[in-house]
Amino acid sequence: MEWLQQLVNGISLGSIYALIALGYTMVYGIIKLINFAHGDVFMLGAFIGFYAIARWDIGFIPALIISMLLCAIIGVIIERVAYKRLRNATRIAALITAIGVSLLIEYTVIFFRGASPEAYPEVMANKSISIFGASISSQSIMILAVTIVLMILLQFIVHKTKIGKAMRAVSHDADAARLMGINVDNTISATFAIGSALAGAAGVIFGIYYTRIDPLMGVLPGLKAFVAAVLGGIGSIPGAMVGGLVLGVVETIVSAIGYSLWRDAAAFVILILILILKPSGIFGKNAREKV
């Protein structure tokens, strides 16, 4: 049952991409900014979780919550300090700022703690369960469970709460939303908070699953998640989830058929193909550009 094993491998990898991709897509949906610092919030989340577990000896769930809370605050600070004043600037200015923030976070962490990698402490027993000949580790099941819970929670927030309604309204038309009495600035901050919290959660999960974390760990997963978001249709929340899972499975298939060195290339070939053939992605709407 090798294909089943590979499918499990692909879904575990894909759910981490999906969690990071959600933050990209939410931020893009609301202010049309590709937040390249998002991968670094993911890295900060992994380190916060690491220090919480290693120093205070707390379990997985408390560490996850602490990391999500701090990442939400960090996300809001980044938005208020770096992006808010660029709201009416050209898009390219905001994009370059995002890359600047990303480098600033990476190298400030290196400045304070060095570039050496850190090994995540083992917080939960890792047993392998054998199902139909595929060995599934209890950690992969946990990753999938946490990812699903967070996604359901996100769907609930976006569709059933007042702030979710405000987010959808601002994303649709910020000026009209402001006229309707919605506080656009607070809504954007809330979006950054939720997206960054999800990145923080992804960081802790990544640390537990893959053990090794370092200050530049956010770069490649960040780019992959960006591909996932574009694949699913940037701005679309279900698109980010599906895009992440599809990307994880595709990468696994590429390795499984013996082209492991082409795995990263495959992800970016997908990006290029999507941008050429269907720029709106799987779930994207074919919205006409407003003039």
């Binding site: 220090y51 923030v101 400030t108 400045f111 703690r113």
Partner: peptide, 23 residues
Amino acid sequence: ASVFLASSLIVGALAGCSSSEEG
């Protein structure tokens, strides 16, 4: 200055707990 301060605060809060055995 405010961008710089804020970002170093973020990271400082995080890295504050790491010992400075490097260097």
